[in-house]
Nucleic acid binder design. Structure first.
Lengths: 352, 352
DNA sequence: CTGAAAGCGCTTACAG
DNA sequence: CTGAAAGCGCTTACAG
């Protein structure tokens, strides 16, 4: 038995409707050219046969695959951040609205991975790329621009001139908001737990912290180390045990913040009451009972949507207003117990 | 300027090498038919022009898209489990080894989503599907089988006859191992924090727990509730405050286990020393400092690889030994502090 | 061992 | 408004 999906072609629909192939094609691609009664007859035949245009044939003819390439990174071990999961979903959904799908591929980081992009292009397997995880000295934006390949990125092109279209999160603004929040709660000794200089994302975030401190008359105090929760714990320990211990810790990531919370627990300090802690990313673990970490949440779904709009604009699929090529979206501060004194009302935290 | 990728076709390679189109095609698809010196000449032309066959053209002709469909679910809010991230990566990588890519799409759950699968099939956009997140009463395996569509699943077809090919994790075996581990440490009152009956995965896991208890002469004690850390905390609280409180808690998921750990902390009990806790999934948060949750780790990369092998076998792309249509892989127990008394040597835990 | 022919299913000018 | 023609780039029998 033939399944409903197996057979229909332009040809079979045409003969069912008593017209020629190209009239059926016109009904699909330029309905205004077809007389209403003819159109209806054809549409009925399409329905009856459950006809859908063959994608390969259409792609061959139009020179558009209607596929967007996206490189999946191996999830870093111990990565707490399912942000890219949500991003991929958002991109897939936004693309679907325009008849596009996402094609996944893998590639090594850096220059070595460029070959995979070139391969896909040579095969005309994709019409363009969505990039994520752009890093300092990422070769992709420049290379794709050079090749004339349409792309849009989640993340700035961190090095050199700011090329290509991108959407990113304003990490600096987020950290500024965090400091303001802590300052409003009465904190005056607010330290920052960060990554080593040179990481783009990390530098952006610490910049926002520092700017806010200076504006509010606080002393910026930054400690840095590679890594996640383990080093966050160590850095927080040093701060808390030192002279002039901070009453609040702003952390470059939730990961570091989990380590900082651990350091508090180690010495019997209560988060939010004795020392406030703020993270970045609003990872799922942040709302675990007993963790309750204040964090900056990224508008991932919106980012996915806007990246797709940018790319489809480049492909001429959607007409975009001649807007900016870059978009910086503000993260939003989600306040939880780690930066909120217990009890009713905004109690004053420990002061200097 | 034409980029290297823009131009080359079978035709241009052929004229560069001084042969006909189909000889070039033969070099690619049936090299043994071509004389060595001709072959080399053609291969040099392919290199020089950086020729890659156009995928659309090839697909149109061969009636194979070389694309595997995979449906991305919206990440559940508060989902701690980046398991599918790793799975998708593994599938993509395994597929790449055979010239296949993954095509992402979205679909609503249940019967409503079947249309999206049908659409892709009608368009001949994919050759088959990889399924994940199969649930009880999942309509997909039966429907795809009925339509004669190749697919392979991560997860059993939980209801009705066991149709289609799948790879799954042996949750029962994992839980049995957890109970044995706790028993060996001296625990005699081991309770299980589970999900309500009827969830497939949950039922499988509790079955392994119960079987192990009976075999070891322990009294099975199961409490159940929908949900994650919040309910895990509540269930654990009830157990710990009741008569005959357990000395060990086996949890259906890490999520529940995080809640259970919270319940311990609430009442000043030390994990691993006063009460042991074991989770399932080995989520990244399990190894956070101060969490150190013992958990069952799933061999996700292997699952992804085997699912792809099964699917490609169905498609005739790889010749698979006529092996079983189903594979059950054992999770491995990762022992951390939550089920290990502190201090040197295997100290005896609290006993009845 | 190599090449001429047919055709996969579609869309895009272009006649009528 | 509708249809005949050409062609996207490839592969697969099939002659020679």
């Amino acid at each position: 038995m033939a399944t409903p999906e197996s057979g229909a072609t332009l040809e079979s629909v045409a003969s069912a409707a008593g017209v020629s192939r190209q009239t059926v094609s016109n009904v699909l691609n330029a309905p205004e050219r077809v007389a209403p009664e003819t159109r209806q007859r054809v549409e009925e035949a399409i329905q009856a046969l459950r006809y859908r245009p063959n994608r390969s044939a259409r792609s061959l003819r139009t020179r558009m695959s209607n596929l967007i390439g996206y490189c999946v990174q191996p999830a870093a071990a111990g990565n707490l951040n399912p942000v890219l999961d949500r991003f991929v979903h958002a991109v897939t959904e936004s693309a679907a609205g325009h008849g596009f799908h996402v094609l996944l591929f893998t590639a090594p980081a850096g220059d070595a991975g460029l070959d995979r992009y070139a391969e896909l292009l040579a095969q005309r397997a994709v019409d363009g790329f969505v990039l994520a995880d752009t890093v300092v000295a990422d070769p992709r934006p420049a290379w794709l621009t050079e090749q004339g390949v349409p792309f849009a990125a989640f993340g700035r092109s961190w090095s050199g001139p700011d090329i290509g279209r991108w959407v990113d999160v304003d990490g600096a603004a987020g950290m500024t908001e965090a400091v303001e929040h802590l300052h409003a709660l009465g904190h005056r000794r607010v330290a920052f737990i960060g990554w080593p200089e040179g990481s783009g994302v990390g530098d952006d975030r610490v910049a926002g912290y520092t700017a806010a401190c200076l504006r509010l008359g606080l002393d910026p105090r930054v400690v840095r180390a590679e890594g996640g929760a383990g080093t966050g714990r160590a850095l927080a320990t040093t701060l808390l045990d030192g002279d002039d211990a901070p009453t609040a810790l702003v952390c470059v990531s939730d990961d570091s913040a989990y380590g900082a919370l651990r350091a508090l627990a180690d010495r019997g300090l209560r988060p939010g009451e004795d020392v406030a802690v703020v993270g970045f990313d609003d990872t799922p673990a942040a709302r675990l009972p007993g963790v309750d970490l204040t964090s900056l949440s990224q508008p991932i779904e919106q980012i996915g949507h806007e990246v797709v709009q940018m790319l489809l604009g480049l492909l001429g699929v959607v007409v975009t207003p001649p807007g900016p090529e870059h978009r910086l979206l503000r993260p939003s501060l989600v306040v939880r117990a780690s930066s909120r004194p217990a009890g009713p009302g905004p109690a004053a935290p420990t002061e200097a």
